[in-house]
Structure formats: structure tokens, C-alpha cells
Write a protein that binds this DNA or RNA. Structure first.
Lengths: 314, 314
DNA sequence: TTTGGGATGTCTAATAGTTGTCTATTGTGT
DNA sequence: ACACAATAGACAACTATTAGACATCCCAAA
């Protein structure tokens, strides 16, 4: 029996995107989880239980009734949402590297079926989040690198981008119109033509409880702001990959700030985001270095919004 | 006895295209399905029952009386639907128009979930081929039209393109490497940035037995030819939508012919393909006016190839 | 042609189940 | 003292269930 990290309900709430209320109610009514208790009677959740709650949230958001699925085993829940989770860890490194190599090879050969197949296996091995972080995202870097160095033609880059989008599109969730969820606009700004980063952010965000409106590549500031206003979006995610020295983009970013409604959070990421640090700082954007970090920021933002909404009601 | 995902009546209604009322009535009056019940007495449908309901809906829409067919086995139901599918025609017009209107509205509102939902229903109603021809393809025209006229912003156009690609990506088949199938390269040539047409062709082709390598938008002739050579592709599908008067494109097309291996069929389609008729004629391209026509050409081409291969063996 | 009746989809009203949220109260930890 | 957590229960907003009424449509008998 090993000691494992145990988490407070607040912590679990933040990590799962469920309110503490709901977590307790699921326990009381359906025994969805049975956390240990501290001496004083407080709930202490294991990582396993956190994962279970996340899986349950995903399944309910996919339209399944909590009362029906709460008693299922992890495997059954995963099968409903069409995903599998891995026991991450040391071997994952090798496996993911091998898989990336296989994918790169498929790209080189322009083999769509092979690429999809490899990505699918990655999904099974690492789960949705894992495959994004350990396979698709580094692959995108690598393909971009090879393209710039001339090792890959534009055809390879296009091919990979399209295939990755198809694969990711399958992962994406279109939720029932649970209007409580905050809205995110994902796109790349004018002049930035590589859309895969923005798309990945969109998919990831949709998994942690955001409604995502994906607008594609090369949007002028006014249009982004228009979409934000129309959707009452809480945040805008911008992917900035290439080029890294476009003076117009700095202008665009400053404009964006002007057009956006007060209180809209701007999140920027991608290889070249750092190159526009000055402008990004000025507009109060958060710069994230990885998908994971981006998810954290989004989680925090959602919590914060929930708190504000509660305050507003008083 | 394995646990399987069970679905609420609402969910089933969405997936079958039948109203919840009708589903219940079919159960009450004809025992067409006998779903399990939850503790609270709610109906829980298995995937098998969902399929049965879909088959029953198709059969009734083909003119059969529910009272007669409700008791049949799955095999019997499918056999009667297989025969008389051709009657569909007339009523589909109104339904598809309504659906297109709904989709356009969702695009206007940038409502991803609504758009996906409508497209999904289109898939249920018209099948894979039908939804392409009667919904997605005309929608693409309409969205493009509105964009050019200024009624839609670039954001709307991007949004629709992305959403449609996600939807179509789900339809796409990635075959096992059954190498007997001929290979098609789908893309748009240099200067043509609207990729949806090429993507639709790719999806349609994958359904009629082609292996498809989708390369995205804006590929120079040399790269297209490279991809053809690498994949030993039998044909190249080019989508030409906008602009319709690019002199460079004519050059590109002539170049393409030079670079391509002998015997590679070029197929061109899209709103503005006619504008390049001269160049297309010179390179021996087939110009198609609709997805349907494109499929016919591809079918013919595949047959022809099969015949040639047989001859070569003798 | 008209009429009647069966088949079929739609609708309503009353009842009940489901689920997220909220409150009040008491307790815990720092 | 203060913020946070636990419990039980209340509640509102949905969603489903049942039985039955109703409007069409079609076919066949009068």
C-alpha cells in the first residue's frame, strides 16, 4: 500500500472543472467516487479519483446521464467517450518518440492512412491530452523545422497539417449548448498562416470545459474582436508560429486590444510568440509556452469567472 | 453479457432523426424496440436498437408501413430498404433547403455546436453522399457568395471552412493499405486559397474506393507533381474557386502537365474552373461541374485502369 | 362518390424522475 | 477569528413517462 498524493476538494474542483457542490452531490447520490477522509472528516482525493471525475465530466458533457454512468468502471466510462487512458511514465517517452518517428515517416511518404493509424494508436496509448502534448504538438514543430530547412516541401507541411486537423477534429467535442461554459475564440492573427497551433488549443480547450469557436488562420484584429463580441467570449487564444518579425503584427495586436470588450483575456502561444513580447505585454496578454500551460491558464480563468459571477449575484 | 453504452431517448432521437414521441409510439403500438429501463423507469437504448430505429426510419421513408415492418428482423428491414431507395428525391429538396438555412444561420452566429448538429442531421437524412451534394457543397457556394458580397466577414468564411472540414473529416475513410485502390491527389493549385472544394472531392473519392492524399491549398505545380510521383497517383483533382482570372495559374497548369508522369489524369472543378478552360484543355484535364460528375469521372477512370491492368497481364 | 375505419404521426396534461444549485448549520484547520 | 468543508435537505429547471385525444391519410366498402 503506497502513500499517494491526496487532494482537497477545492483542488479537485479546479482540476476537474466540476464545482465542489457537484462533486459532493455525485458522491452522495451515486457514489461516483469514495474519497478517503482526513481525521477531521475532510475529503481527500487520489489521482485516480480525479481522473475518474474528469472522465465522468467528459461523458456527461457528451450527453450521458450521470445517474447511469456513475457506477461504471473506468474502462466503461472511457469506452463511452471513445478514448483510453495510459499509465504514463518512463516507457511513454520511448513509445512516443517511436510513434513520432513513424508519423514523420508517413508524412515523408505522404501516406495518409499510415499517419492516421499512427496517431490513432497514440490516442489509445496516451489519451487525448497525451497525444496532443507528446505526439501532435512536437510533430508540428518538427515538420515546421524540416520545412524551413528545406527537407520537407510545402506539400509535406500541408499534408501533415490537414491530416492532423482531421485527426484532431475527431477528438473535438461539440457540447450541448450548456451556456454556463465560457467561450474561447481560437485563431491566428493577420499574417500568421500556420493554423495548427490554434486548432490544437481549440481541441484542448474543448476538453477542459470551454466552448470553442475556431476561426482559422490570418484574421484581422477587427474580425477577431467582432467574433468575441458576438459570442461573448471570455478569452482569445492566438497562435504565433511564423514569421517572428512582422511589424504589422505588433500593430494588429495593439489594435486588437482596442477593439476587444473590456475584460477579455488574450492568450498567446507558439514558437514565435516571444518575438512580440513588447506588444503582448502592452495588451495584457498571457504568453504560454506549451499546451499544458495554456490549459492551466484557461482553467484558472474559468474558476475566476465563476467566482466573479457568484460575487455579482450577491 | 457485456455492458454497453446506453442512450437516452433524447440522444437516440438526435441520432435517428425520429422524434421522441414517435420512438415511444413505435414501442407502445408495435414493440419495434424494447429498450432497457433505468431504475427510475427511463428508456435506455443500446447501439443495436439505435441502428434498428434508423433502418426502420429509412424503410418508412421509402414508403413502407411501420405497422408491417416493425416486427421484422434487421436483415429483413435492410433488404427491403436496399431495393427501393430511389424514390427519395422530391421531398429531400425542401428538407435540404431548410437545413442549409439553418446552417447559414449558425455560421452567421458563429455557433459551432449548432452547425455541427445541423450537418449531423443532414448526414442522417441524406446519407454521406447526399449531405455533400445537397448541403455542404451548396453551402460552400453560398458562404463564398456572401463573403464576396461583404455580407459575411472573413471570420465567417474561415469558421465555416473549418467546421465543414471537421465534419467531413469524420466522414472520411482511411482504408487499410489495400494497394489495389487507385490513388488520388486532391489539392488546389498555387494562388487558390479556398480548400474546401478539394477537401470535399477527397472525401467523396474516399467513399467510392479511392485512396486519397489530401494536400491542402496553394500548391505549386512541381510539388503536386512530386506528390503524384511519390504516391504513383492515378489522378489529380484540382479545385479552382477564386480568383477566376489569374494568368499565373494558366502557367502553373501548363507546367503541371510537363512535370506529371505520363497518363496521370487531371480533373478540375469549382466555380471558376471554366475561366481557365484554354489551359485546362491543353493539358487534357477533365472539367467537372459538380461533385456528382467528379465521382462519375473517377468511377470511369478506375474501371478503365482495372481493364488496362488485366490486359497487361495477358 | 361518399363514407367509415384502420393506420399513423402529433399533441397535451398530469405525474414523476434527474440533476445542478443553494441554504443553514455545524465543524475544522491555521 | 477567519476561511473553508461537511451534512442534510430544499428547490427549480429540465427531461421522461403514461394515457389518451386528435388530425390526417389512405383504402375499401357502400
Amino acid at each position: 500500500m503506497s502513500e499517494q498524493p491526496l487532494h482537497s476538494i477545492q483542488n479537485v474542483s479546479a482540476r476537474t472543472g466540476l464545482s465542489a457542490h457537484v462533486i459532493r452531490v455525485w458522491e452522495r447520490r451515486y457514489a461516483a467516487v469514495t474519497p478517503k477522509r482526513s481525521d477531521g472528516g475532510r475529503r481527500l482525493y487520489s489521482d485516480r479519483e480525479v481522473e475518474r471525475l474528469i472522465a465522468l465530466r467528459e461523458a456527461t458533457q457528451a450527453g450521458h446521464s450521470i445517474g447511469v454512468i456513475a457506477g461504471m468502471t473506468m474502462k466503461q466510462i472511457s469506452s463511452i467517450t471513445g478514448k483510453a487512458r495510459s499509465e504514463a511514465g518512463s516507457r511513454a517517452m520511448d513509445a512516443s518518440a517511436a510513434l513520432r518517428a513513424e508519423c514523420l515517416d508517413a508524412v515523408k511518404q505522404l501516406e495518409g492512412a499510415g499517419l492516421q493509424d499512427a496517431l490513432q494508436r497514440g490516442l489509445v496509448m496516451f489519451g487525448q491530452r497525451g497525444v496532443l502534448q507528446m505526439v501532435v504538438s512536437p510533430l508540428a514543430e518538427e515538420v515546421g523545422e524540416r520545412w524551413r530547412s528545406g527537407a520537407f516541401a510545402a506539400a509535406h507541411e500541408h499534408f501533415f497539417t490537414s491530416a492532423a486537423k482531421i485527426f484532431l477534429g475527431r477528438l473535438n467535442k461539440y457540447f450541448t449548448p450548456g451556456s454556463a461554459m465560457p467561450n474561447l475564440i481560437a485563431c491566428t492573427p493577420s499574417g500568421q498562416l500556420h493554423e495548427l497551433g490554434a486548432f490544437m488549443v481549440g481541441v484542448a480547450a474543448s476538453h477542459i470545459g470551454w466552448r470553442v469557436t475556431y476561426l482559422g488562420a490570418g484574421l484581422p484584429a477587427a474580425e477577431i474582436a467582432g467574433a468575441v463580441a458576438q459570442n461573448e467570449a471570455a478569452a482569445v487564444a492566438l497562435s504565433i508560429v511564423y514569421p517572428g518579425d512582422d511589424p504589422c503584427l505588433s500593430e494588429e495586436l495593439l489594435d486588437l486590444k482596442k477593439f476587444l470588450p473590456e475584460g477579455t483575456q488574450i492568450i498567446a502561444g507558439g514558437r514565435c510568440a516571444a518575438g512580440y513580447r513588447y506588444a503582448l505585454d502592452r495588451i495584457g496578454a498571457v504568453v504560454v509556452g506549451s499546451l499544458d500551460e495554456c490549459c492551466e491558464v484557461l482553467d484558472r480563468l474559468r474558476m475566476q469567472r465563476a467566482v466573479n459571477r457568484n460575487r455579482a449575484r450577491e
